[in-house]
């Protein structure tokens, strides 16, 4: 496995190049180039933060459901139990686990997003 340049460094290089040509583009392409640069920022953050976030999310869902599994299995089971009413907002630990997972997801998707304030 080649170590350098790392995947996130390659992505970063492309993002910088897009930024450098953006000012000369017609409006619609300039907009889409900005979106493309944002896409690469998401990819870069997912490369660096994703593995740990996924491991943590898996552990949280396993704790909530009381058994091990892959993230996809645990996620599907959680959705089924929420849908049939076996778990709801008042299930101990549920909101805390969902919030911890989504906080890590938003750190990848939109780190500057200002969430709804807590009351």
């Amino acid at each position: 496995m080649i170590e350098n340049p790392r995947a996130d460094e390659l992505v970063e290089a492309v993002a910088r190049w897009i930024d450098s040509v953006r000012p000369g583009l017609p409006p619609r392409d300039a907009f889409l180039a900005r979106v493309a640069a944002n896409v690469l920022s998401v990819v870069k953050r997912e490369l660096t933060l994703g593995p740990q976030a996924e491991a943590a999310a898996t552990a949280r869902l396993a704790g909530l459901l009381g058994h091990e599994g892959t993230l996809a299995e645990l996620n599907a089971e959680l959705c089924a139990r929420l849908r049939d009413g076996a778990m709801d907002r008042d299930t101990p630990g549920l909101l805390a686990a969902l919030k911890a997972n989504i906080v890590e997801q938003i750190a990848i998707d939109q780190p500057n997003y200002a969430p709804e304030p807590a009351r």
């Binding site: 907002r89 909101l95 969902l98 919030k99 989504i102 906080v103 997801q105 938003i106 998707d109 939109q110 997003y113 969430p115 709804e116 304030p117 807590a118």
Partner: peptide, 12 residues
């Protein structure tokens, strides 16, 4: 995910 974080906080 932005709507999900807002929904969790609204429920909290």
């Amino acid at each position: 995910s932005e709507t999900e974080i807002d929904l969790v906080i609204l429920m909290e």
